[in-house]
């Protein structure tokens, strides 16, 4: 099934499966963040309030584990998606860092510091989008690995690890969680909510559509590639 690239001036950027993955991801991450931070800040008003509405300390733990499993399941699904589906394969290919990214970074620096008029020539994903994607992948791998080690202790399964390993794991888990929140979450919130041009919210995550105008401005390389071959067809998996 082939569809034309632009429908009423819009391009389908993300299909339904991708949008659902995104929703599951941010729901799981926000819930993990809230249930995790409430333990980290147990002695502040925030922690006490959160643990109270989470139904106590034990219930807080169970909620955290539940969303951790949601995240793990999503991770497994996503790995299959980018490995075996056509759309997934093409998306992950676009996520790869290339020499162009380095050039774009320099242009972007020059532009941002007011030293040049040229704007970066971004493809399907710009630098911060790539960074955020790989940041989430990398962060999730660390969080899931350390989380599983900690969970083994909670479930009294593994006594084979020495105590100092638990201590380090515990520390890495809480600091990395904080890092994901402060860097990836806040950065992403700026990019898709607060940044001028998208404020109050970019709607791509809901509709999956991006306008021709926005594509031209934000992803000029992709726009030019589409227009180079006017007769070309854009392949889309699944329904919108």
């Amino acid at each position: 099934m082939n569809k034309t690239k632009f429908q009423n001036g819009y391009l389908i950027r993300f299909n339904l499966i991708e949008r659902i993955q995104h929703i599951i991801l941010f729901v799981a991450l926000i819930m993990l963040l809230l249930t995790g931070l409430s333990l980290s800040y147990y002695d502040s008003w925030f922690g006490r309030f959160m643990i109270d509405i989470e139904g106590g300390l034990e219930s807080r733990g169970n909620l955290h584990y539940f969303f951790a499993f949601v995240l793990m399941a999503l991770g497994v699904f996503h790995a299959f998606y980018v490995t075996f589906s056509d759309k997934g394969q093409s998306e992950i290919a676009h996520m790869k860092y290339t020499k162009k990214d380095f050039r774009n970074m320099l242009i972007s620096f020059r532009y941002n510091f007011g030293m040049g008029k040229a704007t970066p020539y971004y493809g399907r994903y710009n630098l911060s989008q790539k960074f955020q994607y790989w940041g989430v992948i990398f962060g999730s791998v660390i969080m899931i690995t350390t989380g599983i080690i900690l969970l083994l202790k909670v479930w009294k399964i593994a006594m084979l690890f020495p105590k100092w390993l638990w201590d380090i794991t515990n520390l890495v888990h809480s600091f990395e969680g904080m890092m994901i929140f402060l860097v990836l979450f806040l950065w992403h919130i700026y990019d898709v909510h607060l940044s001028p041009g998208v404020f109050p919210m970019s709607r791509v995550w809901l509709t999956g559509k991006i306008s021709e105008e926005e594509l031209k401005k934000e992803h000029p390389e992709e726009y030019d590639e589409i227009n180079k071959d006017k007769s070309g067809e854009w392949k889309i998996d699944g329904n919108i």
Partner: peptide, 15 residues
């Protein structure tokens, strides 16, 4: 922790 072993206690407490 009934299945505690020497490994389990390796490390500092009151960190």
């Amino acid at each position: 922790h009934p299945d505690a072993n020497a490994n389990y206690t390796m490390g500092k407490i009151h960190l």
